[in-house]
Amino acid sequence: MSATTDRRPMSGTTSAGRVEIHDGAGWVPVCGYAELTPGRGVALLVGGEQVALYRDRTGEVYAVDNRDPFSGAYVLSRGLLGSRGAVTVVLSPMYRQAFDLRTGVCLDEETAPDGSPAVLRVWPARVRP
């Protein structure tokens, strides 16, 4: 299954579409596509875990962990989206590190202060009519 091919909404379904996230067991509907502001994110509870869901200016959707590994606070959904070269990133609102939304990898620092790798879990996301 390729999640990325499903990121873009099907034509004509933009306002009516809904977003689904794969929690490991199956696709879970989380919110309406129209509820997302281009360039920003929202926080979700998926199976008891906090997920940050974003929509970029081209219409694609991304989902990663909401927890910022550098501060330990659950705030990444409140970060701004940006681009580093061709890569779409989210910028942590706490200490401004950039995370690649396709891989979850932090582009500025390799490890978090607790020694763990600074990589976010990437949750497959798609837009359904």
Binding site: D56, R57, T58, L80, G82, R84, V89
Partner: peptide, 9 residues
């Protein structure tokens, strides 16, 4: 068409 960033936005 770019996304911008936390500086310019």
């Amino acid at each position: 068409g770019g996304e911008g960033c936390d500086i310019c936005k």
